[in-house]
Simulated assay, not measured.
Amino acid sequence: MMRIALFLATNLAVVLVASITLRLLGVDAYLYQATGADPMSLLIVCFVFGMVGSIISLFMSKTMAKMSTGTQIIEQPRNSQEQWLLDTVAELARDAGIKMPDVGIFPAQQSNAFATGWNRNDALVAVSAGLMQQMRPEEVRAVLAHEIGHVANGDMVTLTLIQGVVNTFVMFFARIVAQAINAFLSRGSDNGNALGFMGYFVVVTVLEIVFGILASMIVAWFSRWREYRADAAGARLAGSGAMINALSRLKAETQLPDQMPASMTAMAITQGRTRQLLQKLFASHPPLDDRIRALKEAAYRE
């Protein structure tokens, strides 16, 4: 539940920061005074600020990822393991048709990995120290292929665009509903703003939180869908058997504490256990059993 709370808090923070910016620029004050404000103009303004927040987070993604996970970029390989890691990523990147991403290792005992970056030719692929220690080379290669698949599919950019659109409608509908509530409460009154100046802002904020939580389910659904695509890409690049074995190994380790920061959940290869309905709705990854089953079915069809 803590991971879900942090995931929601991260998404809501972007919306609330953009919302505060709208207030500082006087947009909310205008809406409070003008109950007949043009919805299209409001939608355009919300779109601009909703997208700006997401785009800024995209451009900062590599820096934030390195800071939050403690990832150390391999500039010069210090041993044969790091050299193998660089060579393997270079080979997979070449096969996927993308430029060589930065490669790093982060200090976590659980087997995990993630990819991030603002575009497919300026990405970061990182693996945990535990993954390098506990998996066989062909399984590590499959995990790397999965992450390269994310990069080649442009998942980071697509997720940013979806989050931006979601932010837009969260801010837009929060203000439209707040205006409707204010108009309803003001019926038959000489005062056209029954909520009051502060009351309007409070209602908008509460609605943004509620709509933001609901919208997070849409973002999480897309994140789960893209994991299947990345698994398929990993199977093409490293072989179905190796990808299935890697996911099976990850499944066996789900009893261990998850050491990935919540802000990095959507970019990791595994989120761990998702047993409760609430966890399933907000999970960034499908259950490992479902992912393994999808790979086996695809291999059978071939």
Rank of each mutant, 00 (worst) to 15 (best):
F172P: 00
G241N: 15
N153S: 14
T160P: 04
I162M: 04
S189Y: 09
F184V: 12
G234V: 04
G192A: 00
G149L: 11
I176E: 03
G192Y: 00
V203D: 01
A183C: 08
F197P: 01
R226G: 13
V157A: 09
S216Y: 06
V170T: 12
E227N: 14
I176D: 04
F172G: 01
I162W: 01
H150S: 02
S186G: 04
H146K: 08
V151F: 00
F172T: 08
S223R: 07
M198I: 14
S189K: 14
Q179T: 15
F222W: 15
V206M: 10
N182K: 12
M171P: 00
A145V: 13
G188K: 02
V140I: 15
D155N: 14
W221G: 04
F211L: 15
N167C: 03
N191V: 12
S223E: 03
A180E: 09
T205L: 11
V210I: 15
M217T: 14
G212P: 03
A174H: 01
S189I: 07
E138M: 07
T205A: 14
V204L: 04
E147D: 02
V177Y: 03
M217R: 09
L161Y: 13
R187N: 11
M171W: 00
I209R: 02
A233K: 14
A230G: 07
R187W: 10
R229A: 11
I162V: 07
N193G: 06
N167F: 06
F173D: 02
I209T: 00
N193K: 01
S223F: 00
Q163I: 11
F222L: 13
H146G: 08
V166M: 14
V157W: 10
F201C: 03
N182D: 14
A183L: 11
